[in-house]
Design a protein around this nucleic acid. Sequence first.
DNA 1: CGATTGACGTACG
DNA 2: TCGTACGCCAATC
Length: 114
Amino acid sequence: MVGKNDGFFQQVFQVARLVPRGRVTNYGAIARYLGSAGSARMVGWAMNQAHYQLPIVPAHRVVNRKGLLTGKHHFAYPEQMEELLQNEGIEVKNDQVVNFKELFWDPTDHLSID
DNA sequence: CGATTGACGTACG
DNA sequence: TCGTACGCCAATC
């Protein structure tokens, strides 16, 4: 439960924190989880603010639908995102998460698990 | 205050 | 499978 008394951005941060280590999700999945399907761009914008949030938000675990590290440029240095992912055991090849389909973690799926 | 810009995704041909 | 068009909505110009 994420708590609706928090703002949309704050919810995005919390959902991002739910992503297990060594797994990744995408912007659309988070947006849909929050009931704002189609507002994936807002998730991306929220991620922009994520660096100022505490506790830290694992923004590196949020990639686009293709598994591409589109947000790498927004980190301290572009390669940091890839390094953080590799540090969690996620293989990254040519700015793309290898086995993305298998490593993909959908917050909506988290709700469906009995 | 209107136009432009995005860490995006879906629809369509 | 790939390129283009469009919706989404806050922030910025």
